[in-house]
Simulated scan of single mutants.
Amino acid sequence: MTVGFGVKWGGKAVNFTELSKGENASTLYNMDRRMMKHSWQQVGDQARYKNKHGDYAGLSTYTCDAFVHKDNVFSCNNINLSYSFSQNWFKRATGLESLSISASLSDIFYISTIERERGTAYPFSVNPNFSISCTF
């Protein structure tokens, strides 16, 4: 059995999802829930995003340090489990030289300080793999 983990601590990354789906979101399409919650409503509000209506609605915000966040990540990339039948009793009982079975999962979990958009049709996919190998 093997388990693979990934860790990235102390890095920084631009959150392009927040920029494109938040700050520069179009009211004609689906908007990120953070945009609805954290945009300013009245003049003078202290808010993370600009208002989507009024004088500044048509202006695009470019990438800047306001969208750079700490990117600490802990993930489980894969789990593999395999077993080989190659003992003498197995050879006599089945006539096979060896038989091995294995199963694996990839992309088990991903925990990050940056909330990433993984898509709406397939928001997160754990990929299973199974195999049987025999030698005659």
Rank of each mutant, 00 (worst) to 15 (best):
R116D: 09
S26N: 05
K50E: 10
G11F: 06
T94C: 07
Y110F: 14
K12M: 05
S100R: 13
S104H: 12
K12T: 09
S125V: 15
T94L: 08
A57L: 06
S84R: 12
C64W: 08
K37L: 15
L19Q: 02
R34Y: 11
I79D: 02
K91S: 00
Y122W: 13
S86N: 13
M36P: 09
S104C: 07
M35D: 08
F109N: 07
R33S: 15
G6L: 05
Y83G: 00
G119K: 07
I132R: 04
V3C: 08
R116Q: 13
D45W: 03
V7P: 02
K21Q: 14
W9I: 14
V3Q: 09
K70T: 05
A66Y: 10
F74S: 01
D107N: 15
C76D: 04
Y29K: 07
I79C: 01
K70I: 00
P123G: 01
Y122N: 13
N80A: 07
Q46H: 14
Q46W: 14
G22Q: 02
I108G: 06
S125C: 07
K52Y: 07
S39R: 15
C64I: 01
S106R: 15
T2W: 15
N127I: 15
I101E: 06
N88I: 06
S106P: 01
V7E: 04
D32S: 15
A13P: 00
F16W: 11
T27Y: 05
S84P: 03
N129H: 14
D65P: 02
G44T: 08
T120H: 13
L105T: 13
W89A: 10
S86W: 03
S39G: 08
V7T: 03
T61I: 11
V126E: 00
I114M: 02
E115A: 05
F16D: 10
K21S: 05
L99G: 08
Y56E: 10
A47T: 02
S20C: 04
I132T: 03
D71Y: 12
K21F: 09
V73E: 00
F109A: 06
H38G: 09
S75Q: 12
F130D: 01
V68S: 04
T113I: 11
K8M: 08
Q87V: 06
E23F: 03
S20Y: 11
A25L: 01
F85Y: 04
N24M: 04
I132N: 02
A13V: 06
S86H: 08
S82V: 01
L81P: 01
D55E: 11
F85N: 00
T27C: 09
S20K: 07
S106D: 10
Y62L: 13
R118K: 11
M35K: 15
E115Y: 08
G54S: 12
Y110D: 02
T113Q: 14
N30T: 10
Y29E: 05
I132Q: 01
F109W: 09
M31A: 10
G54H: 02
G22N: 03
N88E: 14
R118G: 14
K21P: 00
G58E: 08
E18Q: 01
I114N: 08
P128R: 07
G95C: 02
K37S: 12
Q46N: 12
M31H: 08
W40D: 11
H38I: 04
L96I: 12
G22R: 04
W9E: 06
W40L: 14
Y56S: 06
F90E: 00
R33F: 14
Q42D: 11
Y110R: 02
F5M: 09
L81E: 00
W89Y: 14
W40R: 11
